[in-house]
Design a protein around this nucleic acid. Structure first.
Lengths: 207, 207
DNA sequence: CCAACAAGTGAACCGTGATTCACTACTTCC
DNA sequence: GGAAGTAGTGAATCACGGTTCACTTGTTGG
């Protein structure tokens, strides 16, 4: 057996792969998914088009990984911040919302790509996993709040989805350009909104 | 001048145009924008591909009209329902939300296409107009509420955008499949959510 | 009926961008 | 050095669906 990939070679291969993922991520962060063609990725990574296909079976495969990494970073922060057990649900939601907002506003193009921009089906399904992750993070907080008597019983998944949708729309959705004010004011408005939207136990139930 | 389009001919032309728009709308309502290619539209309308281009300069042009009509119907209902001046903002928001939900749930594929599905830029800009319409309808109610002392001062456009986003996400967004319960329960949850989310004057301001 | 023009037709065209593949260059081991 | 295999290359190919256009058909008024 005259040839067998060695450690050194394997590392080089991995580095090349990383270079491609990194180039793709830079393109997405800089100009959105629309600007991230295979040719552009290859050029930025300093490799040939064919090389990209040595490491990924398709464009969808590549960007599924790109989205997975970028989204995981974001989700981890929100999960971390909202995990603080014992504290009131309202505070935990506020912290999660603020973290979500700050990160989205810090890299709006990336946030748009991760949340709202049209993408390939393979990438879309990856995105869905993380959207569900956000929803579930909020839902956990809501359910803890119910258990602790702070919130009344409610359909947590739906309310959590509504919170995610509210943030997505106001931060990166088509209506997001509307907020004329400062970044801090926007965050304050959204934090406030999400906190009040919670089904507090002491709130009068309308209708 | 041996030929001049007459009334009868003009009517026939208009009918053909309507047939194309109708076919396109049926396709969108049945299978989303993705399933509505020019070939498919022409086939369903019973005309040749070229005929479509006698009536519309491009695919974007055709579907901009399709979306405009479909969206206008929906927006009119929400604007109508929420316009009732004099009544409390909470009630008006509840009525608007309920109308929005019922119509979206009655035709989920169409709702998805109108609100969330990826579309051509020309169509997207048409969609934006209507999303702004929804937001503004909510914003008007919010501002009336502030004037009437029912709500405290706040960033109405942003809060209105958040409401629209919350509804869009929970009804037709990627997370919408999650709501396991009944349609009525979902509507009740969202109506409740949106009402509580309003910045009521008597609500304690956190943080 | 015929001139003049519009409407209708649909196979062929075209732009875009992902994907392929025959080839070269490199790495390992004997 | 040479055999055996992998990584890299990038111009050519392919798939797709919107768009075109030379042609046929239909309509009007003289």
């Amino acid at each position: 057996m005259p040839y067998r990939p060695t450690e050194r070679t394997e590392a080089r291969r991995l580095a090349a792969r990383e270079g491609i993922v990194g180039a793709a991520l830079e393109l997405v962060a800089g100009g959105g998914y629309a600007s991230a063609g295979i040719q552009a990725v290859a050029a930025r990574a300093g490799v040939a088009v064919g090389t990209v296909y040595r490491h990924f079976t398709s464009k969808g495969d590549l960007f599924a990984e790109v989205f997975r990494r970028a989204s995981q970073r974001e989700l981890d922060v929100v999960v971390e911040v909202s995990a603080a057990d014992g504290r009131p649900a309202g505070e935990r939601v506020a912290a999660a919302v603020e973290a979500f907002c700050r990160r989205a506003l810090a890299g709006p193009t990336l946030a748009y790509a991760l949340i709202a921009e049209p993408v390939d089906p393979a990438v879309e399904s990856e995105r869905l996993r993380f959207r569900i992750g956000y929803r579930d993070a909020f839902a956990r907080v809501l359910e803890d709040g119910v258990r602790g008597g702070e919130l009344r019983a409610h359909d947590s998944p739906t309310v959590a989805a509504a919170l995610v949708g509210a943030l997505a729309e106001s931060l990166v959705g088509p209506l997001s350009t509307a907020n004329g004010g400062s970044r801090e004011a926007l965050i304050a408005t959204l934090v406030q909104f999400c906190q009040e939207a919670l089904p507090s136990a002491h709130e009068r139930v309308h209708a």
